[in-house]
Nucleic acid binder design. Structure first.
Lengths: 193, 193
DNA sequence: AAATAAAATTGATTTAGATCAATGCCATTT
DNA sequence: AAATGGCATTGATCTAAATCAATTTTATTT
């Protein structure tokens, strides 16, 4: 149940066996079925979820009722609404399982305590955040300046996992395109080779 | 010279006077004139710059020769290309002063050393990064899903400083709009009230 | 396996914003 | 004060992507 977590931490910092055993005790394992939600818009996001198995997405719904996917999560990724999780504000996002999933939940206070008891864990969290920030910067760039086709090609290059495991209309939503546009973009690309 | 830095750190964590004195020694003060660059595209970003005074911007230039502003920085903000700074990769950004500015530069190794010697500084860095991440997430949302007018109104609401201190065509670039479109959007808004 | 629902594709039309082009407006510099 | 060059504004036109609509394909449920 903790294989992915061990792997994820191990890639960034070194924990002793005892430290990792201690670490485990702070997490709450949870299974969640496809289409079930971990967080509902309007609620406070009480957990940071590490994904041992499965796929999740977080999304907002705008005034016109359109869904906008903000983030996907796969095995070995963390998913949360950081803003709500850290400040306790009501979330504007819904987090939902796309496939049956196994999660390890960490409350904000458990996370604080873990970072105090195991300094390497604070380091791990900071490194994760750095990477997430860099990835997000790339995404802003693509969102602002790329054409529909470029957005799609950038995504296939950077995150083939997303293309492979997520329904096409969700990929479209993640890229800020309509499903029709993404379908046409894919057709264009396939015709060219 | 270190007023803004003291203020910025003080808002997030508590340092003793000795700690802050030690902290100062890790920084390299640097004055930079309007239009001078701190980082040139293709170079490695060796510094994380804290802005004591002035305004900076970072931008990329795409294949068609168009500038895309990625980030602005004002007094009390940090500016760098995090990806290049942390990994040593060549940067795709240029960082340039929009006004005469006073900076406090921190190399990556100085930063590492500081985080080891003063744990509260690592905490400070993590908190900064959290806030930056949350802000960036909002920006992605706006970039993907908002109309030109919404993008502009969001920005005026969240960062009036940017509107006030930065030339309009740079604001347009930051929002992913042409200067013409931003001009028209502003006109529309002013006609309505 | 049949029925139903959801997803993807394709076509026709519309539209927000880009592009192209010209003019007026400040702000430096001389 | 005149001259220069970068900005902002305004108008006309174009275009990438959205919207609307229908059909086919693929998943789910019964």
């Amino acid at each position: 149940m903790y294989e992915q977590l061990a792997k994820s931490i191990g890639e960034k910092v070194a924990l002793t066996t005892e430290e990792f055993e201690l670490c485990k005790t702070f997490f709450i394992p949870k299974k969640i079925r496809k289409k079930q939600t971990l967080l509902l818009e309007g609620d406070v996001c009480t957990y940071n979820a590490f994904i041992e198995k499965g796929v999740l997405r977080s999304y907002t719904i705008d005034d016109k009722g359109n869904e906008h996917i903000v983030q996907f999560g796969f095995e070995g990724w963390w998913v949360t609404d950081l803003s709500s999780y850290l400040t306790g504000a009501n979330s504007i996002y819904t987090i939902e399982a796309i496939e049956d999933s196994e999660l390890l939940l960490l409350t904000a206070s458990a996370r604080e305590e873990l970072m105090i008891q195991i300094p390497a864990f604070e380091r791990y969290q900071r490194l994760l955040l750095q990477n997430a920030y860099i990835a997000l910067q790339t995404r802003v760039n693509s969102a602002l300046n790329a054409t529909a086709e470029e957005k799609y090609l950038n995504l296939t290059a950077s995150y083939p996992t997303i293309i492979a495991r997520v329904p096409q209309h969700m990929v479209a939503s993640y890229l800020g395109l309509t499903p029709e546009t993404l379908s046409r973009v894919r057709k264009q690309i396939s015709l060219r080779k």
